[in-house]
């Protein structure tokens, strides 16, 4: 694979944990933020994801890669309870999320962005972030309608907090712009801000660099690390841009045909023959992508 992959922004020593995974050294004795056990889902007999086991440390940046159609987004949908798994469990901060709804999973501390951007496109940038703050700074419907003091207080707090979050990506000046009219890259960044507003302990990013130029990608990489450091949260990301994945991920998990085919540090993954075969095909099978 390419030379660029050797350029690393992070330098973490990864250590194996008793379960079948690795976590950053600093997270070894802490409770993992995410743990899945034999997670799987079938769609009418087709096993989209099978026996998916992963442990993510509370401050880890973890990559999920694999060829198209490998089931990466399905894993995200399983973790966020958009799909209910047919086998196995997801533990967030040690708590079993079986039977929970997407909304409850979010309250447990799991937030995500989407591969095909899903902003509230008719609402302003600030209002998008305020939706993220919905459960963080609440007040009742009645105080909203009657404009009680609690309404004004909470609205002010929401406004301040929203601008503060937007400033991570330098977007505070765009607060009044309609989200749908933002440029593509800004929409992706806004999705991350909205997810962050829900105060997660694990942030799932589905192809955050899709459609970004190399310069923007590099900025995004720095910002992901900054978010991790400032908010002390774990980040799990799906990405096809190997510069990004190899540059910032501490642990990488490779998925093919719904199964994990390799787990390890970026260096290990780059040298893993099974991974190389999954991406490039073996020499024996011609035309197999």
């Amino acid at each position: 694979m390419s030379q660029n992959m050797k350029k690393r922004l992070l330098d973490t020593k990864m250590v194996p944990v008793p379960s079948i995974s690795i976590v950053p050294e600093r997270d070894v004795n802490k409770r993992p933020v995410l743990e899945t056990r034999h997670l799987g889902i079938e769609f009418g007999g087709l096993k989209a994801v099978e026996d998916f086991n992963i442990t993510v440390g509370p401050t880890e940046i973890c990559g999920l890669i694999g060829p198209n159609g490998a089931g990466k987004t399905t894993v995200f949908n399983l973790l966020t309870k958009v799909y209910q798994p047919t086998t196995g469990t997801v533990l967030i901060n040690g708590k079993d999320t079986s039977g929970m709804t997407t909304e409850q999973a979010n309250r447990m501390g799991i937030a995500r962005t989407f591969q095909n951007i899903r902003l509230f496109s008719n609402m302003s940038v600030e209002d998008n972030v305020r939706i993220g703050l919905h459960n963080q700074i609440p007040y009742s419907m009645l105080s909203g309608i009657l404009r009680l003091p609690s309404y004004w207080k909470a609205e002010k707090k929401q406004h301040e907090k929203a601008l503060e979050l937007l400033s991570i990506f330098g977007m505070q000046d765009m607060a009044d712009v309609k989200a749908g009219s933002l440029p593509y890259g800004a929409q992706r960044r806004l999705e991350i801000v909205r997810a962050l507003a829900t105060n997660p302990s694990l942030l799932l990013l589905d192809e955050p660099a899709a459609g970004m130029n190399p310069h923007e990608t590099e900025e995004l990489m720095r910002n992901i690390i900054k978010i991790r450091d400032d908010f002390q949260i774990a980040v799990m990301l799906i990405e096809h841009d190997m510069n990004l994945v190899m540059g910032i991920c501490e642990g990488i998990c490779v998925l093919n045909y719904g199964r994990i085919i390799a787990k390890g540090t970026p260096e290990e993954i780059q040298q893993n023959p099974v991974v190389i075969e999954a991406y490039l095909g073996s020499q024996n099978k011609e035309g197999d992508k």
């Binding site: 997407t102 909304e103 309250r107 937030a111 995500r112 509230f120 939706i131 919905h134 909205r194």
Partner: peptide
């Protein structure tokens, strides 16, 4: 009201944001 409009704009995103 914002929550109601968010659900209208994108239900899945609204759920994922904890609504």
């Amino acid at each position: 009201g914002r929550a109601i409009m968010a659900i209208r704009d994108n239900r899945i995103a609204a759920e994922s944001t904890g609504l």
